[in-house]
Amino acid sequence: MGMIERYTKKARWFHWIYVAVFLELVLSGLVIFVPWSSLSIVGQWVRLIHRIGAILMVAIPLIYAVLKPKQAYYFVIEAFQWGVDDLEWLKAAPNYYFGGDPRSMPPQGYVNSGMKLYRLAILIGGALFVITGFIMAFLKDIVPPVVFQWSLFVHDFTFIVALCMFFLHVQLGVFHPRMDESLLSIIDGKVSNAYASSHHGKWYDRVRQEKNHADQIVD
């Protein structure tokens, strides 16, 4: 069974570092939602850790964008490229994800419509986190209290949604029977041809064509 590269080594490192930073931010932020957590004496350390995490959360994608500008560009741009196939995909998705016939799904590119939605959530949620977090951490004494109050509201709301999205990501990547090669692909970078063909048909065909074309040139 042939394999095809899906994630480069840099992309995989980026992913896992981001997971670590995300979890660090989740755990240090969750304190606010645990009323019985009298973490008094470590409170300011938790706050410091949260802020360091926030800086990494902003810095890491920027570093990645410098190292891999093309990938970073596509990561953003693909989230906004929607076509008829995407609507068909969204319609067919519930049945598909509940174990229905996979042939009902329209062929997908490198990212499917669900992944595009996820990327949109990351981009919008990330922007909201950064803007409101920046206001609360650095502009507290400058902005009127009401701005702080609604920044906290947006930050918390985004957090509640973000954790749900994280659960979805883990469910699809690790536990869902349809995505049985997903976890391995983000560890060693490859998926089988069969998986690539069934899950990302358009991308698979394009890669095959490019490969054939390259082979012909070599020949």
């Binding site: 994800y97 509940f98 174990g99 659960f167 979805l168 469910q171 869902h176 349809r178």
Partner: peptide, 17 residues
């Protein structure tokens, strides 16, 4: 609720497959 819903989804999808 979201975690339970996602778990249920996995169980149903596995069973149907």
């Amino acid at each position: 609720a979201v975690a339970a819903g996602l778990a249920l989804n996995v169980i149903v999808a596995r069973a149907r497959q």
